[in-house]
């Protein structure tokens, strides 16, 4: 007798969220099955990986991930073009880390100018991130939203402390937003509810349950993502149906395993390979947990994850 695989049917579906404009438009989500379970239903869109770039040179990145960008990372425009043209990025995530009060403390106006310049240089979808300083992010992301008006960007991250300002600006300028809560599924749902209660459509949200790197709490992120996806698909919970983001790079490239030199820890093997593997493994785990949008740094790690996606899809 022929083997018939058991199939689950799901009552819910992840929203299909289009980002960017024109030829470069991308879409995330849209599936009505668990990750890579396309044999059970429809998964029309592959996960999208965005390359991370910054408004200021990446002084705090470890050498091995700084190196691939050393010719371009002094200028966000060159950096963005490099990612699009050379690395064939499907999306770019511009982190305005230089606006952080403890960093260069760049102004909202400066940030807005960077956004404009980058948008003028590339046509792939742009994710615009603050410096994760809830207070400063509010004016920075408002200015960034205005500067990117009608470009259908993804603005983030809206958190409990600042979501009202950011969501209002994103709504007025036709963007999507990332809603981030701190590794708590119930608070993640609550934030999505609060944002939609402002009149922001839930189909324009992306959920960030907060990332963590392999060895540094990845299992928590994994578990929250998995439960969010199950609530979306099996309980048809509309508040949990936005696509999910894994903001991988910034967590991976600050852990010991991606920084400790071979001279100190020869048994850990090549530092460069180790870092790439760390980022690729973290990213792959979160894809399996349900993330549809990833932000990553190292080109080789992205390449590995792309390969994995092609194999699994």
């Amino acid at each position: 007798m022929a083997f018939t695989p058991a199939k689950e049917t799901y009552s819910g579906k992840v929203y299909s969220v289009a980002i960017g404009t024109g030829e470069g438009t991308g879409t995330v989500g849209g599936e009505n099955v668990l990750p890579f379970h396309s044999f059970e239903g429809a998964a029309p869109n592959r996960p999208v990986i965005a390359f991370e770039i910054q408004d200021v040179p990446p002084a705090d990145w470890p050498e091995s991930v700084k190196k691939p960008f050393e010719a371009v990372s002094d200028d966000p425009v060159k950096w963005a073009r490099f990612c699009q043209d050379e690395l064939k990025a499907k999306a770019i995530a511009l982190r305005l880390v230089g606006t952080h009060p403890d960093r260069e403390n760049r102004s909202a106006e400066d940030a807005a100018k960077t956004v404009k310049d980058v948008l003028a240089a590339v046509n792939v979808p742009l994710i615009i991130l603050g410096s994760n300083h809830a207070e400063k992010d509010a004016p920075v992301l408002v200015a960034a939203s205005e500067a990117a008006k009608d470009k259908n960007c993804v603005i983030g991250k809206a958190q409990e402390a600042n979501y009202k300002t950011i969501a209002a600006a994103a709504m007025a300028n036709n963007h999507k937003i990332i809603a981030m809560s701190e590794l708590d599924i119930n608070l993640s749902k609550q934030l999505n509810i609060l944002i939609t209660q402002m009149g922001f459509e839930k189909e324009r949200l992306i959920t960030d349950p907060m990332c963590s790197a392999l060895g540094y709490g990845l299992e928590y992120t994994y578990s929250v993502m998995e439960r969010i996806r199950l609530a979306a698909l099996t309980q048809n919970d509309a508040t949990m149906q936005p696509p999910m983001l894994g903001d991988i790079g910034m967590y991976v490239w600050k852990v010991k395993e991606t920084q400790a030199p071979e001279a100190d820890l020869p048994h850990w093997g090549s530092l460069e390979e180790r870092g790439i593997a760390w980022e690729a493994v973290t990213a792959t785990a979160l894809l399996v947990a349900g993330a549809e949008l990833l932000i990553m740094r190292h080109p080789k790690a992205v390449e590995e994850v792309q390969k994995t996606i092609e194999e699994l899809i």
Binding site: I185, L187, Q190, A231, T239, M240
Partner: peptide, 9 residues
């Protein structure tokens, strides 16, 4: 259904 503070709403 997943609990959230606003579940009644």
């Amino acid at each position: 259904t997943l609990y959230a503070h606003s579940y009644l709403e």
